[in-house]
Design a protein around this nucleic acid. Structure first.
Length: 421
RNA sequence: GUGAGUGUAGUUCAAUGGUUAGAGCACUGGAUUGUGGUUCCAGUUGUUGGGGGUUCGAGUCCCCUCACUCACCCCA
């Protein structure tokens, strides 16, 4: 707590240690297994990219690129940024490696740290982890439905099956301008009464007015036209079929006409999964369709769909539902004396080779303190090795859970642990 | 960037402005020879986040600063 000399993790960045790390590993294991069954392959992209990739992809005028990026100049004078999200990097990679020449759709997932310079709070960090998926090359709502279904199964496997998906469509290049026009004319003269942020949005990105939480803005948009009612025929069809498919897949969802998402690249489908058990930062997973991002980043005209889940937020929820795991050694070798140390290390070596988690005690310490240590690390069995045992060719053992014990020849040690580990 | 709350031992917390800042847990050792947990005994750790001020006297009151937490904002 004291001295300013001590190093600590940077603000908003933290260590993931046991026992939490076991929760992380479990989540990642479930993700990779499940995603594989949907045909998604892992990709690993660099954590840093040219700044322009993010400003162009995510969009200037968004908070993320305007004030939250870790941007610096490298020694060659290039502007570099730590990725604030994963999609732009995967899109860059897709274009750079001409993956559109492979059969569509191409489906990828990634897991890793993202960086945003924000004020930390519950569920929000400057370095945070996302597991994300991106699928390229299909504009069919079937893709939207399958990917959302995959997310749903992922959450279910983690015991988070009561979470509801919120869905909306924000239209496309053909119909969105028309809608924002009617939204603006609906507000009309009263736009001056909007909050300062919305005054700015009014000009830059009128859609964002829809999810402003300032009371006067909520009041002003009462009865405002809904995006969903102003979609072009294609977008409307897309949305209708998506809802039909989601229903068929038995995915509980609600339409949220005011959800628009904070990134510029979305088209048509946007969705979000939130939790009531988290605090203010309650979005657990979110994503949508981005049919123009690939071409806007210099690639071919390829539609895509994706989402990201926030690891820190997921782990918080998972920790509430699943019991904590405390991995413990199967064998603890209590060693008494120098000869026991010599033989004990050879024995530990054999057990470990057989895949049995084995710990060894301090051969100079008393048996009592070694027993105590074995208990503290919750070892299943203590194997006692001292001069007596070596002379007799038999080890003594004790099962800590019930205090039972006995002895057995050293030659039977490995088989002793079969089925116990 | 804005606002609020909190900073005392490794940790959780005590200490009407008044001696040398305490306790539980944890940790280490021991309780007649080589058997854990329960119990008993002993031991270790603090510039009370840092700096300044008020006062005869500050962990306690005031100011500044730093850190953490939560919220706004934004988002996963």
């Amino acid at each position: 707590m004291s001295s300013a000399e001590k190093y600590r993790a940077l603000k908003g960045m933290r260590d993931v240690l046991p026992p939490d790390i076991y929760v992380w590993q479990k989540i990642e294991g479930i993700a990779s297994g499940l995603f594989a069954s949907y045909g998604f392959s892992e990709v690993r992209t660099p954590v840093a990219e040219a700044t322009g990739l993010f400003t162009r992809g995510i969009g200037e005028g968004t908070d993320i690129v305007d004030k939250e990026m870790y941007t610096f100049e490298d020694k060659g004078g290039r502007s570099i940024s730590l990725r604030p999200e994963g999609t732009a990097s995967v899109v860059r990679s897709y274009i750079e490696h001409q993956l559109h020449t492979l059969p569509s759709p191409q489906k990828f997932y990634y897991a890793g740290p993202m960086f945003r310079y924000e004020r930390p709070q519950s569920g929000r960090f400057r370095q945070f982890y996302q597991i994300g998926v991106e699928a390229f090359g299909s504009s069919s709502p079937a893709l939207d439905a399958e990917v959302i279904s995959m997310l749903r199964h992922f959450l279910q496997r983690l015991g988070l099956d009561q979470l509801v998906v919120q869905v909306n469509s924000i239209g496309c290049a053909a119909c969105r301008p028309g809608y924002t026009g009617t939204l603006i004319s609906f507000l009309g003269e009263r736009q001056g009464e909007l909050c300062p942020d919305c005054q700015r949005r009014h000009a830059q990105n009128p859609l964002r007015i829809l999810d402003c939480k300032v009371p006067q803005c909520i009041a002003l948009r009462q009865g405002a036209p809904k995006v969903m009612d102003h979609l072009c025929a294609d977008c409307r069809q897309h949305m209708e079929l998506l809802q039909h498919l989601l229903t068929g897949l038995e995915i509980p969802f609600v339409l949220n006409h005011e959800m628009v998402r904070g990134l510029d690249y979305y088209t048509r489908t946007v969705f979000e999964v939130t939790s009531g058990d988290l605090g203010a930062q309650n979005a657990v997973a979110a994503g949508g369709r981005y049919d123009r991002l690939v071409s806007e980043c210099g690639g071919p005209d390829v539609p895509a769909f994706g989402f990201a889940v926030g690891m820190e937020r997921i782990t918080e929820l998972v920790k509430k539902t699943l019991p904590a795991v405390h991995p413990a050694p199967s064998a603890f070798l209590a060693l008494l004396g120098a000869q026991a140390l010599y033989e004990g290390l050879r024995i530990a070596d054999r057990l470990r080779t057989a895949g049995i988690w084995t710990e060894t005690g301090d051969h100079t310490a008393s048996l009592k303190s070694q027993m105590r240590k074995a208990d503290r690390v919750a070892a299943a069995f203590v194997i006692i090795i001292g001069d007596d045992e070596l002379a007799a060719g038999e080890f003594r053992w004790k099962k800590l859970a019930d205090g039972t014990g006995g002895s057995a020849p050293f030659s039977a040690l490995s088989s002793f642990f079969c089925g116990c580990s």
